[in-house]
Protein backbone atom coordinates (compact mmCIF):
# COMPACT_ATOMS: atom_id res chain seq x y z
CA UNK A 1 0.00 0.00 0.00
CA UNK A 2 2.72 2.41 0.98
CA UNK A 3 4.69 1.49 -2.10
CA UNK A 4 1.71 2.45 -4.17
CA UNK A 5 1.29 5.73 -2.41
CA UNK A 6 4.92 6.39 -3.03
CA UNK A 7 4.59 5.79 -6.73
CA UNK A 8 1.51 7.87 -7.24
CA UNK A 9 1.89 11.56 -7.68
CA UNK A 10 -0.26 14.51 -8.52
CA UNK A 11 0.23 14.15 -12.25
CA UNK A 12 -0.91 10.58 -12.20
CA UNK A 13 -3.87 11.40 -10.02
CA UNK A 14 -4.89 14.16 -12.35
CA UNK A 15 -4.69 11.89 -15.36
CA UNK A 16 -6.93 9.33 -13.78
CA UNK A 17 -9.45 11.91 -12.61
CA UNK A 18 -9.61 13.42 -16.04
CA UNK A 19 -10.16 10.12 -17.75
CA UNK A 20 -13.83 10.04 -18.57
CA UNK A 21 -13.94 6.28 -18.83
CA UNK A 22 -12.72 6.12 -15.25
CA UNK A 23 -15.45 8.48 -14.14
CA UNK A 24 -18.06 6.42 -15.92
CA UNK A 25 -16.73 3.28 -14.35
CA UNK A 26 -16.82 4.80 -10.88
CA UNK A 27 -20.39 5.96 -11.28
CA UNK A 28 -21.35 2.53 -12.54
CA UNK A 29 -19.69 0.90 -9.61
CA UNK A 30 -21.25 3.24 -7.10
CA UNK A 31 -24.65 2.53 -8.49
CA UNK A 32 -24.22 -1.23 -8.66
CA UNK A 33 -22.51 -1.59 -5.33
CA UNK A 34 -24.93 0.67 -3.45
CA UNK A 35 -28.00 -1.06 -4.77
CA UNK A 36 -26.52 -4.45 -4.15
CA UNK A 37 -25.54 -3.49 -0.62
CA UNK A 38 -28.95 -2.11 0.25
CA UNK A 39 -31.02 -4.86 -1.29
CA UNK A 40 -28.89 -7.75 -0.19
CA UNK A 41 -28.70 -6.50 3.37
CA UNK A 42 -32.45 -6.03 3.53
CA UNK A 43 -33.11 -9.41 1.99
CA UNK A 44 -30.63 -11.04 4.32
CA UNK A 45 -32.32 -9.32 7.22
CA UNK A 46 -35.70 -10.63 6.18
CA UNK A 47 -34.34 -14.08 5.67
CA UNK A 48 -32.54 -14.03 8.98
CA UNK A 49 -35.67 -12.91 10.74
CA UNK A 50 -37.69 -15.67 9.13
CA UNK A 51 -35.15 -18.26 10.12
CA UNK A 52 -34.42 -17.06 13.61
CA UNK A 53 -37.79 -16.26 15.04
CA UNK A 54 -40.21 -18.51 13.25
CA UNK A 55 -40.17 -22.20 13.73
CA UNK A 56 -41.91 -23.21 10.55
CA UNK A 57 -42.22 -26.58 9.00
CA UNK A 58 -39.11 -27.47 7.03
CA UNK A 59 -36.98 -24.88 8.76
CA UNK A 60 -34.11 -27.21 9.38
CA UNK A 61 -34.15 -28.29 5.77
CA UNK A 62 -34.04 -24.73 4.57
CA UNK A 63 -31.14 -24.08 6.90
CA UNK A 64 -29.19 -27.02 5.59
CA UNK A 65 -30.11 -25.92 2.11
CA UNK A 66 -28.67 -22.49 2.76
CA UNK A 67 -25.46 -23.91 4.11
CA UNK A 68 -25.34 -26.24 1.15
CA UNK A 69 -25.54 -23.45 -1.36
CA UNK A 70 -22.60 -21.81 0.31
CA UNK A 71 -20.61 -24.88 -0.56
CA UNK A 72 -21.14 -24.56 -4.25
CA UNK A 73 -18.18 -22.96 -5.94
CA UNK A 74 -19.19 -20.01 -8.02
CA UNK A 75 -17.39 -21.40 -11.03
CA UNK A 76 -19.81 -24.28 -11.19
CA UNK A 77 -22.85 -22.08 -11.13
CA UNK A 78 -21.63 -19.72 -13.77
CA UNK A 79 -22.54 -21.69 -16.90
CA UNK A 80 -26.04 -22.27 -15.61
CA UNK A 81 -26.48 -18.71 -14.45
CA UNK A 82 -25.12 -17.41 -17.72
CA UNK A 83 -27.59 -19.50 -19.60
CA UNK A 84 -30.39 -18.08 -17.48
CA UNK A 85 -29.26 -14.57 -18.25
CA UNK A 86 -29.08 -15.22 -21.98
CA UNK A 87 -32.46 -16.88 -22.09
CA UNK A 88 -34.16 -14.01 -20.31
CA UNK A 89 -32.46 -11.55 -22.61
CA UNK A 90 -30.76 -9.78 -19.76
CA UNK A 91 -27.30 -9.95 -21.24
CA UNK A 92 -25.37 -6.72 -20.92
CA UNK A 93 -27.75 -5.23 -18.37
CA UNK A 94 -26.72 -3.85 -15.06
CA UNK A 95 -29.56 -5.74 -13.45
CA UNK A 96 -28.07 -9.05 -14.44
CA UNK A 97 -24.69 -7.95 -13.17
CA UNK A 98 -25.90 -7.45 -9.61
CA UNK A 99 -28.63 -10.03 -9.48
CA UNK A 100 -26.63 -12.96 -8.07
CA UNK A 101 -25.16 -10.70 -5.41
CA UNK A 102 -28.54 -9.77 -4.07
CA UNK A 103 -28.95 -13.12 -2.41
CA UNK A 104 -26.36 -13.42 0.25
CA UNK A 105 -26.51 -16.71 2.07
CA UNK A 106 -23.67 -15.79 4.37
CA UNK A 107 -25.47 -12.56 5.18
CA UNK A 108 -28.66 -14.42 5.98
CA UNK A 109 -26.88 -16.70 8.38
CA UNK A 110 -25.16 -13.81 10.07
CA UNK A 111 -28.42 -11.94 10.42
CA UNK A 112 -30.02 -15.08 11.73
CA UNK A 113 -27.47 -15.22 14.51
CA UNK A 114 -27.79 -11.57 15.33
CA UNK A 115 -31.57 -11.61 15.37
CA UNK A 116 -31.61 -14.69 17.55
CA UNK A 117 -30.23 -12.55 20.32
CA UNK A 118 -33.19 -10.20 20.25
CA UNK A 119 -35.43 -11.01 23.21
CA UNK A 120 -38.63 -12.76 22.26
CA UNK A 121 -40.70 -10.79 24.69
CA UNK A 122 -40.40 -7.57 22.71
CA UNK A 123 -41.57 -9.38 19.63
CA UNK A 124 -44.53 -10.91 21.36
CA UNK A 125 -45.47 -7.57 22.80
CA UNK A 126 -45.38 -5.94 19.40
CA UNK A 127 -47.46 -8.65 17.82
CA UNK A 128 -50.00 -8.41 20.58
CA UNK A 129 -50.22 -4.73 19.88
CA UNK A 130 -51.30 -5.61 16.39
CA UNK A 131 -48.14 -5.08 14.38
CA UNK A 132 -47.78 -7.18 11.28
CA UNK A 133 -44.56 -9.03 10.68
CA UNK A 134 -43.13 -6.33 8.48
CA UNK A 135 -43.41 -3.75 11.21
CA UNK A 136 -42.05 -6.10 13.80
CA UNK A 137 -39.08 -6.65 11.60
CA UNK A 138 -38.39 -3.08 10.67
CA UNK A 139 -39.27 -1.28 13.89
CA UNK A 140 -38.28 -3.77 16.53
CA UNK A 141 -35.74 -6.20 15.19
CA UNK A 142 -33.61 -4.17 12.82
CA UNK A 143 -32.77 -1.38 15.28
CA UNK A 144 -31.36 -3.94 17.65
CA UNK A 145 -28.88 -5.32 15.19
CA UNK A 146 -27.52 -2.17 13.67
CA UNK A 147 -23.85 -3.13 14.07
CA UNK A 148 -24.37 -6.34 12.17
CA UNK A 149 -26.40 -4.61 9.51
CA UNK A 150 -23.72 -2.03 8.99
CA UNK A 151 -21.01 -4.63 8.73
CA UNK A 152 -23.00 -6.60 6.23
CA UNK A 153 -23.79 -3.56 4.15
CA UNK A 154 -20.16 -2.52 3.96
CA UNK A 155 -19.07 -6.03 3.06
CA UNK A 156 -21.73 -6.32 0.44
CA UNK A 157 -20.70 -3.03 -1.06
CA UNK A 158 -17.07 -4.14 -1.14
CA UNK A 159 -17.94 -7.47 -2.69
CA UNK A 160 -19.95 -5.79 -5.41
CA UNK A 161 -17.26 -3.20 -5.94
CA UNK A 162 -14.44 -5.72 -6.29
CA UNK A 163 -16.36 -8.29 -8.27
CA UNK A 164 -14.64 -9.05 -11.52
CA UNK A 165 -15.59 -12.42 -12.90
CA UNK A 166 -19.32 -12.14 -13.24
CA UNK A 167 -19.52 -8.51 -14.39
CA UNK A 168 -16.81 -9.15 -17.00
CA UNK A 169 -18.91 -11.96 -18.34
CA UNK A 170 -22.24 -10.22 -18.29
CA UNK A 171 -21.47 -6.64 -19.21
CA UNK A 172 -20.39 -6.07 -22.75
CA UNK A 173 -20.81 -2.34 -23.34
CA UNK A 174 -17.85 -0.22 -22.46
CA UNK A 175 -20.13 2.37 -20.91
CA UNK A 176 -21.26 -0.17 -18.37
CA UNK A 177 -17.85 -1.24 -17.14
CA UNK A 178 -17.31 -1.22 -13.41
CA UNK A 179 -14.36 0.33 -11.63
CA UNK A 180 -12.86 -3.08 -10.97
CA UNK A 181 -13.09 -3.99 -14.63
CA UNK A 182 -11.52 -0.68 -15.56
CA UNK A 183 -8.64 -1.21 -13.13
CA UNK A 184 -8.10 -4.73 -14.40
CA UNK A 185 -7.91 -3.36 -17.89
CA UNK A 186 -5.25 -0.90 -16.82
CA UNK A 187 -3.31 -3.69 -15.18
CA UNK A 188 -3.58 -5.71 -18.35
CA UNK A 189 -2.31 -2.85 -20.45
CA UNK A 190 0.48 -2.27 -17.98
CA UNK A 191 1.68 -5.83 -17.98
CA UNK A 192 1.92 -5.96 -21.72
CA UNK A 193 4.19 -2.99 -21.61
CA UNK A 194 1.77 -0.75 -23.40
CA UNK A 195 1.38 1.44 -20.41
CA UNK A 196 4.53 2.36 -18.64
CA UNK A 197 3.32 5.37 -16.80
CA UNK A 198 3.68 3.99 -13.30
CA UNK A 199 2.22 7.02 -11.66
CA UNK A 200 -0.92 6.60 -13.70
CA UNK A 201 -1.19 2.96 -12.78
CA UNK A 202 -0.58 3.60 -9.13
CA UNK A 203 -3.02 6.46 -9.07
CA UNK A 204 -5.57 4.36 -10.92
CA UNK A 205 -5.38 1.56 -8.42
CA UNK A 206 -5.49 3.88 -5.43
CA UNK A 207 -8.40 5.91 -6.67
CA UNK A 208 -10.32 2.82 -7.61
CA UNK A 209 -9.88 1.32 -4.20
CA UNK A 210 -10.59 4.40 -2.20
CA UNK A 211 -14.38 4.60 -2.35
CA UNK A 212 -14.62 1.23 -0.71
CA UNK A 213 -12.22 2.23 1.99
CA UNK A 214 -14.03 5.48 2.52
CA UNK A 215 -17.21 3.59 3.00
CA UNK A 216 -15.50 1.66 5.69
CA UNK A 217 -15.34 4.90 7.61
CA UNK A 218 -19.08 4.81 7.83
CA UNK A 219 -18.86 1.55 9.60
CA UNK A 220 -19.31 2.54 13.18
CA UNK A 221 -20.91 0.68 16.00
CA UNK A 222 -22.51 3.70 17.49
CA UNK A 223 -25.38 4.57 15.24
Amino acid sequence: MLWLIGRADIAGLKRVLLDSSWRDAIVNSIFLASIQAVVSTLLAGMMGFAMAKHDFFGRKIVLMGLVFTMLVPAQLLMPGAFEMVMKTGLFDTRLAAIFPGLFSVFGSLLMMQAIARVPDETLHAARLDGCNELRVWWDIVMPQIIPTTTTLAVLSFAAAWNALLWPSLILASESKATAAMWAANVAFNASSGELSDTSFIAAAVLLTMSPVLLLGLLHTNDD
Binding site: S34, V38, P143
Partner: peptide, 14 residues
Protein backbone atom coordinates in the same frame (compact mmCIF):
# COMPACT_ATOMS: atom_id res chain seq x y z
CA UNK B 1 -33.28 5.20 10.06
CA UNK B 2 -34.57 2.25 12.02
CA UNK B 3 -31.93 0.02 10.63
CA UNK B 4 -29.12 2.45 11.05
CA UNK B 5 -27.49 5.20 9.05
CA UNK B 6 -25.78 3.11 6.46
CA UNK B 7 -28.66 1.84 4.43
CA UNK B 8 -30.22 5.20 3.72
CA UNK B 9 -26.78 6.59 2.89
CA UNK B 10 -26.14 3.85 0.42
CA UNK B 11 -29.57 4.22 -1.02
CA UNK B 12 -28.93 7.88 -1.55
CA UNK B 13 -25.64 7.12 -3.24
CA UNK B 14 -27.28 4.59 -5.47
Amino acid sequence: FSAGKILPILLLLG
